[in-house]
Amino acid sequence: MGDPQMVMYEEEFNQIQVVCERLIRDANALVVFIVDKNGQLIAAAGEHEHLDTTSLASLTAGNIAATGGMAKLLKEKEFTTQFHEGEHQNIHIQIVGQRVILVVIFDERSSLGLVRLRVRKANEDLNRIFESLLKKVQDPSTGSPFAEITDDDIDNLFND
């Protein structure tokens, strides 16, 4: 099978959220969010209430997958950074630790140079957090959080 399912624990989630909040401030960004490569939103910070983050997450992952496909054709491992420039807003996309995607949306109050600089630092922090999370998930003594769910529970979801 491909990647194992990602399980997120509260401790790491809070650490990730702190990194996102800091990046918003340091980079003068509008929105920061983190998505896994399958398109699931992991964390978001900034003014994201008015944004359809679920769709953005899915499209970001699709974008990364397509770019990864192009990299493969050029015999590159991956293209780790993408930048999309709009009239008012811009999107900076960075792959973190080959596993998750860090997205920064910013406008004219910031600049690509500043965003790149701050993303580099956030990248290091996130890498460390996801490394420790991966170790935790792979530890055989950590049971599946879904172990208590019975077949009846699943059946009940579909009884309508």
Binding site: T54, S55, S58, E148, D153, I154, L157, F158
Partner: peptide, 11 residues
Amino acid sequence: DFLPLSLGEIR
């Protein structure tokens, strides 16, 4: 095409 869907809660 992409469609996110919630199917309810289990425990």
